[in-house]
Design a protein around this nucleic acid. Structure first.
Lengths: 140, 140
DNA sequence: GATAAAGTTTACGTAAACGTAAAGTATTTT
DNA sequence: AAAATACTTTACGTTTACGTAAACTTTATC
């Protein structure tokens, strides 16, 4: 059975360090579908998962529209016809390609960080030499 | 010795699949510093490298301002004082943290892609069963 | 030497993803 | 019940990263 816990907007806001404004915006854009108690939003665990996915997607450079498209297709999977399902597979493949590209980018970046840091430390060492050429001489 | 080749705006535009508008924008923002022959831009191999870095940065979710900040600090490294160098090290560390986060995100995303694809293929198999329940029966 | 091709500046427009302010309602605390 | 707190809608503002159009100059081509 699915969990029954619910969340307020501020709970989610704090947990994921995102403004309530953003959360409401995600709802406006159709990414979250909280129910209402009166006029107050009530978020389900599904909404919570989706918020997590939204934020991760953002960190990975996906637009909200792209993430929403995935959500929509995902929801349609249960009742999906063949065309929809094939389209979903297609999008999944595209995402995988995207991920591969990102992994390459990260690997490259890490190498460059290494050389950058090395060069940086060298420069620092040079500075120390010039500033204190004979620090070792006589300390006693 | 450094390479002496130069590049036109359209050469770079084609090589990296980016509009000339973008390249000029990057110059306006101080990320590229082509020289001029007359009023025409002449890009060096350094500019070319930087363009590559800009685009990779974008794919990794860095803003142009962030990338420029790194470029600026990097340029100052040659003549850098201790404070600048330490700041650069700091930024490099921040970037590493960023990269770690991204690697985690990617790993998570890959797992989710796997389960999504599995679910999708199951749904497809279900569809086929219902559509053609006795395809195997008699074909000869 | 006309004309096309590539480059330039200037400037206004736009989409995405919120920020921020206003002005009101609902709920909890004292 | 008064005050503080949390939540709501509405709506205009802002930043980033370019797109697009206009009007012009320079360079290559026929």
């Amino acid at each position: 059975m699915a969990e029954k816990r619910t969340f307020s907007i501020s709970e989610l806001s704090q947990e994921f360090d995102v403004t309530t404004r953003s959360i409401r915006f995600y709802e406006d854009e159709g990414l979250l579908k909280p129910t209402r108690r009166g006029q107050t939003r009530v978020f389900s665990t599904k909404d919570r998962v989706r918020l997590k996915l939204i934020l991760r997607g953002k960190r990975m450079g996906f637009t909200l529209a792209e993430t929403r498209e995935l959500f929509d297709l995902w929801d349609e999977t249960e009742t999906g016809n063949e065309k929809q399902l094939l389209k979903l597979l297609e999008i999944l493949n595209a995402r995988r390609a995207h991920l591969e590209q990102q992994k390459n980018d990260i690997a490259q970046a890490e190498m460059e960080m290494d050389t950058a840091e090395a060069r940086c430390r060298e420069a620092l060492a040079e500075l120390k030499k010039k500033k204190q050429p004979d620090l070792v001489k006589d300390e006693s």
